[in-house]
Design a binder for these strands. Structure first.
Lengths: 234, 234
DNA sequence: CCGGTGACTGGAACGTTGGTCCGGAGAACT
DNA sequence: AGTTCTCCGGACCAACGTTCCAGTCACCGG
């Protein structure tokens, strides 16, 4: 038995390699967040553990607390990080409607690419990426001639709609949930006496109908916004 | 020292009172869920613990597992339970728009009365209360003459909109968050060079403007739905 | 070349959580 | 009286987020 008394300054072979000799770049907030996003993408929200995250980074779990205060920090940072992928449209020749559609669609795409994000939407989103895109949305609407109280209603309405849509879709298409959705659909058929309309026009759309429904609803909102502008033109 | 050897059949005084002689009604799923809702209302989602819940019910924590399989069950049941308070409108003389507005507004009111519910919206809602109200929504839209693909788009659009709205509002008005919202607003002013439009037309509405914005957006959606019906009349 | 300082790291440990095991008490039905 | 079913809870477990503190490294002024 190797004596425990040999202490931490024991054999060279047992000590970790010198810092400079390590392969991975040094730890940093960005690297932690990047790995957290990867971990969330691969394994889902409930598998994100400080220990697991640290293990993937090749460090001890407690080390993370030098760079971050709590696990919530990781989640907040990861949530904002993914929105960097939402392209901010350029000036489409003043076609505000196209610009807004592009932004909202991109927003939705990101949320669906990272389904774990849906469960995190209940926390304040004040990261730089989110704010920059909110800024663009507001600016585009203002330039289109939308004024209060329609301005706030439009910005919030669009955000709320995309958030709700992504949340709902992520809920029903999450890994391992398809089976549940199938079961649910069968339940409707079985209890068709109690839920006749649901059984007939089954919700829980099966395939890519999500996209169609989303686009239709988005256009309704945009129509309403457009009708409220001074000119009403595109 | 009272001998540990006296065993569980020791002094009467140490034994719990006979089951029939107890004050509280016997445990049941319904009673557990009811208490869970109360606990969530009073202390929020993160304070809901199986142990705390059991304590409030005057039982041991492990007992709960006789009536429920997991903690998720409690959450699912609690979430569905609160929707019993959403009144299903009667037949408003065929005014489908008034009926839908009433249902969606009631839905929103319940979500805001129980702010913890917003964080739970990411789970499948298949409880009887939710299904009954979905059934009513679908039926009302069908009767109004809405047909596919507008039917699914309308039902989902309305649901997603109300869910997103409640989630967002609950996020920013949660207990102890007002201070954060105030700080955020000041941040916009401070960084007004980076977020000029946000600083000017500050989002994060302060007061009851939530209601106004919600109603405007809801009307936009309803206008769009109405325009798609065969008759277009109310 | 040295000694110290501040940036980082991680093993051990704490308190709490969701959940299981199992031994039992009470009532109900033979 | 005995058996069975329903219900209860103490002891226990693995895992979690987080803190403590003893370190190790890179660098910097003498």
């Amino acid at each position: 038995m190797v004596g425990k008394g040999s202490g931490s300054a024991g054999d060279v072979w047992l000590r970790p390699p010198a810092r400079a000799a390590r392969e991975a770049p040094p730890l940093s907030r960005d690297r932690i967040v990047e790995e957290a996003v990867a971990l969330l993408d691969e394994e889902g929200a409930d598998r994100l553990t400080m220990r697991r995250l640290a293990e993937r980074l090749g460090t001890g779990s407690t080390t993370l607390y030098w760079h971050l205060k709590t696990k919530d920090d990781v989640l907040d940072l990861a949530l904002d990080a993914i929105f960097a992928a939402v392209e901010i449209p350029g000036d489409n020749g003043g076609h505000w409607r196209a610009a807004v559609t592009a932004l909202i669609s991109g927003w939705r795409a990101v949320l669906l690419e990272h389904p774990w994000s849906a469960a995190l939407l209940g926390r304040p989103m004040l990261g730089p990426n989110v704010l920059a895109r909110s800024e663009f949305l507001y600016a585009t609407l203002v330039k289109a001639g939308v004024v209060e109280p329609h301005l706030t209603a439009a910005a919030y309405g669009l955000s709320n709609y995309v958030i709700g849509s992504a949340l709902m879709q992520a809920t029903w298409t999450a890994r391992g949930r398809q089976a549940a959705a199938q079961t649910a659909r069968e339940q409707f058929q079985a209890k068709s006496d109690r839920y006749p309309v649901l059984a007939a026009h089954g919700p829980l759309v099966a395939d890519g109908d999500w996209d169609t429904s989303f686009t239709i609803g988005l256009d309704w909102l945009l129509d309403g916004i457009q009708a409220g502008t001074a000119t009403g033109e595109e």
